[in-house]
Nucleic acid binder design. Structure first.
Lengths: 176, 176
DNA sequence: GTCTATAGGGTGATAGAC
DNA sequence: GTCTATCACCCTATAGAC
């Protein structure tokens, strides 16, 4: 009786992502993930070399998109703040589920060397929006704008309901 | 040789808070905390009935202050948004270390029934700042303001350097 | 690709002596 | 208040058969 699984790796990621989000990364055991899928722990290890790699597999696509956006703007001659915030917000909204997982398990991600990379995003965003020699006050405004948008992304309800208002608020926070 | 400890419970909390913040709640074992203090796990259990209670002991003072602030404003005839944001920000800044711990281990806190309480804060803040029948757009603006301030609180450096600028940005985000 | 079996270790928590 | 000793359990990960 062959398993009628199209993409086992993807199914593992989906189930794991849901459990990680609900119970936390550390509190979720691979036994639990395997049971939910109807396979054994050992089968899991065929698809992912470790629990950490499973987590990375879930978060990596989101990380790659943000890195892509940052690289794109860093290569551009000049950056439109409004456009950047909108694009950044849209990526976060598209990966909403993953993003919430990330927010709820920061300390777990820190052990996967993903946090360092994400913390570096902040400085790259500062450089993009207020230049390399930004004052603490300028940095504060960018932080309010970006942090505020991120917090909005975890709000319930369809994104269309709040997307534009959140962007307006972030832009207002940014303005000197 | 009597231990020259003034307040053992407080010292345990301090050491645990530091380890929890650095490694995460789940990744930090009570053996580690005890070793750092030069006592045994069993001694720890004399002061705190469980690991969860130890965590609660660390976070509770912060929770109580925010609850106090909210209760105060809910009892007031009217609320000055600027003043509320300033007071809220100042509490968060005062408990900066605890607040960072909270942010880094949301999933751990969820299991202590502390998250439900904190999530309720959001709705109480919405009610205070934009009334009980707020539109999604109004809620988005409040979320940007509050979330932005919170993100600022985790910025390095002395608070005086960014406090006022952050508040201005949050107020700007709030304004219609 | 998936299984059984197991290695090898850590964990939170408790009992009872001092 | 602190200790030693221990319980009962769960974990990630691997070896090797099918």
């Amino acid at each position: 009786m062959p398993r009628t699984r199209v993409d086992t790796r993807a199914e593992i990621r989906a189930v794991a992502a849901e459990l990680f989000a609900r119970q936390g990364f550390e509190k979720t055991s691979l036994r639990e993930v395997a049971e939910r899928l109807g396979i054994t722990k050992a089968a899991l290890y065929y698809h992912f070399p470790s629990k950490a790699d499973l987590m990375r597999g879930i978060v990596q696509p989101f990380v790659d998109e943000i890195e892509g956006l940052l690289a794109d703007r860093e290569a551009a001659a000049e950056v439109d703040p409004r456009q950047f915030l909108a694009d950044y917000f849209d990526v976060v909204l598209r990966y909403r589920q993953v993003f919430e997982l990330v927010l709820r398990d920061v300390s777990a991600l820190a052990q996967l060397d993903l946090m360092q990379q994400m913390l570096a995003w902040r400085n790259r965003v500062y450089a993009l929006l207020v230049g390399p020699d930004a004052s603490p006050a300028q940095i504060a405004r960018v932080t309010v704008a970006i942090g505020g948008l991120q917090d909005c992304a975890t709000t319930e309800g369809p994104p269309e309901e709040f997307r534009d208002a959140a962007l307006e608020a972030a832009i207002a926070a940014l303005a000197k």
